[in-house]
Design a protein around this nucleic acid. Structure first.
Length: 472
RNA sequence: GCCAGGGUAGCUCAGUGGUUAGAGCACAGCAUUCAUAACGCUGCGGUCAUGAGUUCGACUCUCAUCCCUGGUACCA
């Protein structure tokens, strides 16, 4: 029986161009998706764009665009990542998709029927200067950062609330039953202690007259859903909940990838929403770290934003994939700098993998060796480490053990000095067989490079080709 | 403030209650095309945050101090 595997990233909010942090998330997810495909699983790999809410509405107004037009432009930018990063996702959902809107409204109704949605007065802090609502995290000493001289207005409005508080015990039990629910453990501990400290119901709607850019609350034309309530529902709407329950049940539950700023929403709020709708919780949530650039936080004002597409245009997709997977810690914060990027590129890709392939291809070409067809094997370390999302350790293993071993063997045997053709063929055959396995294991990580290597060494005639990774 | 995690070679990190603390990268030298001046070998490089304690012996255990990171709800 085929296994079904469903994996998703978070949906990036379309208020800025795709940046390298999201590239990290989606490439990590892509590795897992590709690995499962390699294992012959039926894979759904979901990503998309989160398009509602005040910030988007504001941005669109600033650019004199209809919000949907604005979102179309950004959704296209995010879809461009598929080619640039060589992603294998199967689903790209936009929260403005009709199918998603219907699902979100249905979901709302179910939560409401189950008694978890109610109306309450909500106090909003409003900055007259920005003409925007402000959250506490956007304030300093109780003032708007952009307008520190203005007093914030407290505005009251009636909002719908979700009974988060009701699910405290259920969430804690769920965590207990699923001891690997959040990876890494430190993030899991954070969310456990957050839930233990007590939960407050949260607001899930906004008045439409102030902010119309959202999904209509069913049965109440005065309100739209608060953006993230609708956004979270994408994880089920993308696999056709509630329209096609057969498909849904085949694939659900999901493995989620998210950044460390998402722990609460994904591991607690979203899980309680699922409980309310009587849908089982997610399977697992993997939380990656954040990236810094040259040791500094990524920020537009610092101007240190790295565009992943620019990296790809200069050095190729697999060069970026390699750096993000091998040199960025899966769960801790890590740094990106051009200097480190170039160092690792030259050391590992040009001098390492690329050079090994080149020297072996040259030797094989000289004696007109035929390509080798064999059953390719995944090394046992790969699934073991992948289970714990240790992308960096897998690549480190492949380089420092497997690849190095081959170079050393070649240096010891010195095949260029072997006169006996049969002996030479036998030796090169062994080396090539090992390279093929190595490439096969690399497939989820560096798909394009792996394919090139496999093609080169299984071809009728092995020929020396231009460098996989020219030195920079 | 409170809670959690961390401070080990220039950089990224690994590490164990016990002889002279490890790797990769970077750097220097040797050697050298089969190979992308690549591979290989050798070398340089650390009072293992600071102070005290436990111990025959601590980088590894305990305490204190300093510093860093994350969490402490409406941040998509």
């Amino acid at each position: 029986m085929t296994k079904h595997f469903y994996i998703t990233t978070t949906l990036p909010y379309v208020n800025a161009d795709p940046h390298i942090g999201f590239a990290l998330e989606i490439i990590q997810a892509d590795v897992l998706a590709r690995f499962h495909k390699l294992m012959d699983d039926q894979v759904i790999f979901n990503t998309g764009t989160d398009e509602h809410g005040q910030k988007i509405y504001q941005k669109a107004l600033e650019q004199s665009l209809d919000p949907k037009e604005y979102c179309d432009i950004y959704a296209a930018k995010f879809e461009n990542l598929k080619n640039a990063l060589n992603l294998s996702y199967t689903n790209f959902i936009r929260t403005t998709d009709e199918q998603h809107i219907k699902a979100a409204q249905k979901f709302w109704l179910i939560c409401k029927e189950n008694g978890d949605i109610y109306k309450k007065l909500y106090k909003i802090k409003y900055c007259v200067g920005c003409e925007l609502e402000k959250t506490d995290s956007e304030l300093e000493n109780g003032h708007c950062l952009l307008h520190p001289n203005l007093e914030l207005e407290i505005r009251e409005e009636e909002n719908y609330f979700f009974k988060f508080s009701k699910y405290q015990d259920s969430l804690l039990k769920f965590y207990e039953k699923n001891p690997d629910f959040v990876i890494p453990e430190s993030r899991f501990n954070e969310i456990k202690s957050f839930v233990k400290n007590g939960l407050e119901d949260f607001s899930i709607s906004r008045l439409k007259e102030k902010m119309p850019w959202g999904i209509d609350v069913p049965g109440d034309p005065k309100h739209v859903m608060y953006v993230w309530f609708d956004a979270l529902i994408n994880y089920i709407s993308t696999i056709d909940w509630p329209e096609d329950m057969k498909e849904f049940e085949e694939y659900w539950p999901v493995v989620q990838f998210a950044g460390k700023d998402q722990v609460r929403q994904q591991a607690a709020m979203w899980q309680s929403m699922l409980m309310s709708a009587k849908i089982s919780g997610s399977k697992q949530i993997f939380i990656h770290g954040f990236m810094t650039i040259d040791g500094q936080k990524i920020s537009k004002s610092l101007g240190n934003v790295i565009n992943p597409i620019e990296v790809v245009e200069k050095y190729g997709t697999d060069a970026l994939r390699y750096y993000l997977l091998a040199k960025i810690h899966p769960t801790e914060d890590s740094d990106f700098s051009w200097e480190k990027f170039k160092e690792s590129y030259n050391a590992d890709l040009a001098n390492g993998l690329g050079n090994l392939v080149a020297r072996v291809a040259k030797l094989a070409e000289k004696i007109e060796l035929h390509g080798i067809n064999k059953n390719l094997q995944i090394h046992e370390n790969v699934p073991t480490l992948l289970k714990d999302y240790k992308f960096n350790e897998i690549l480190d293993y492949i380089w420092s053990v497997e690849l190095r071993k081959l170079d050393q063997e070649i240096n010891e045997v010195q095949p260029w000095k072997i006169e006996d053709q049969e002996k030479l063929k036998e030796f090169l055959g062994e080396i090539i067989s090992n390279i093929l396995d190595l490439a096969y294991n690399l497939q989820p990580f560096l798909p394009e490079t792996a394919e090139k290597i496999i093609k080169q060494f299984t071809a009728e005639k092995i020929i020396f080709q231009k460098p996989l990774f020219p030195r920079i």
